[in-house]
Simulated assay, not measured.
Amino acid sequence: MEQVIPGSEIRAEQRQDIYTLEAWQQAGKWFSYDGHAIFSRMAGAGAPLVLLHGFPTASWDWSRIWQMLASQNQLLSLDMLGFGFSDKPSDYAYSIEDQADLVQGWIEGLGLTSVHLLAHDYGSTVVQELLARDQEASLSFRIASVCLLNGGLFPEVHNPLLIQKILKSPLGGLISRGLTRGTFERNFRRLFGERNPPEHPDMEDFWQLLTYNNGRGILHQLIQFMEERRCHRNRWVGALQNASQPMRLITGTADPVSGSAMARRYRELIPAPDVVSLRNVGHYPHFEAPWDVFSAYRDFRGSFSD
């Protein structure tokens, strides 16, 4: 199934519902994972819906769609270890598998027996690992459905920015620690569609989240997930191909990193692919076109019984 949506601008009434970064942090709670503090947000009522963010950002990415989703779901989101308001230890072996352990333990600790998953970018790779575990019967909860936003699901068509390649290289530590706001902004803005670029206050918030708790100093460690995607390609692509749950991909086609090419590969490899394409939208569709993403997600959830 294929749907193509032109991609709309953020409406005035939606802007009134956007959380400030300070309000987002104040409404959160922290829990401990392996001795490290993890920031989380919960709201709403209904079936549990876990939201997983991308690299190098945080759960605040969901702020523009949060209230819309909370009207119909029990929302659960967190800043994964090394991101946002969570701890960012410098001497740590960051990995997708470890982040999946974090998410799995969190869900199980909350006593949830069934969850829906909505993920972006880095979070989508965590979902692929969780799906693989589900197929191995190693989860104590049921994954009821999966919806994925732009991300490197298939490493062979992932097209990282030059700065990402450098961060992953042996020079990564030096580049990471010396990253300036100007360099970050120039590269980060390239990920967005022309219709809804981040405004100056948005960039201030993204930069604050990145640099909180010395976040710049570990970017070169976090970005090794790109190599993990290649190493675990068969496991994680197989998890998508073998998934029995309802599954939808919502993709911003103007994304230079994981947009149209990723969606084409998804349609080639995934049985009965369900794809919604948002034209003029880049790598952060839930931030750029929240109403379109909400509508596509609401329709997806309405297409099957929980």
Rank of each mutant, 00 (worst) to 15 (best):
V103H: 05
P160R: 07
H116D: 13
V237K: 01
M80C: 11
P271D: 11
A70Q: 04
H220Q: 04
W30V: 13
L222Q: 11
L148R: 09
L78N: 01
L171Q: 02
L52C: 00
I38P: 03
Y266S: 06
S95Y: 06
S124T: 15
Y92D: 14
S71A: 15
E268M: 08
W62V: 00
A132R: 06
E22F: 05
N213V: 11
L167H: 15
A23P: 01
F300A: 07
E129C: 03
S40D: 06
R230S: 12
T57M: 07
A272V: 14
V127R: 06
F225P: 04
A254L: 06
L219G: 05
S114W: 13
L240E: 12
G82M: 02
D61N: 04
R298F: 11
Q25Y: 14
F184L: 14
Q224Y: 02
V275Y: 12
P285C: 03
R267K: 14
K29C: 10
Q164G: 12
N234W: 10
H158A: 14
F192G: 02
P290C: 03
G123K: 02
F188Y: 14
V281N: 04
M203L: 12
N280K: 09
F294C: 03
A12V: 00
V146T: 09
W236K: 00
V276D: 07
R177E: 02
Y94I: 07
E156R: 07
S32A: 06
I250Q: 00
I65D: 02
F206K: 11
H286G: 07
G173Y: 02
W236G: 02
I175G: 01
S145V: 12
A58N: 13
T57G: 03
R195L: 07
W236A: 01
I38S: 03
V146P: 00
A243H: 03
V103L: 06
E227N: 12
D274M: 06
S86M: 13
S277I: 06
H220Y: 05
M42E: 13
A119E: 04
T125L: 13
D274P: 06
Q164A: 12
M226V: 08
Q74L: 09
F225L: 03
S77V: 09
H158W: 15
M1N: 09
R267L: 08
A93C: 15
Q135R: 09
Q208K: 15
I96T: 10
S124W: 01
H120Q: 11
F294Q: 02
N280G: 08
W60M: 14
V275S: 10
E129G: 00
Q128R: 15
Q221F: 10
D274F: 07
G178M: 08
Q221A: 08
S303N: 07
N242M: 12
M80N: 12
S71E: 11
S32H: 09
V237W: 02
R264C: 13
D299F: 09
G238L: 07
L209V: 13
S303L: 14
I163E: 14
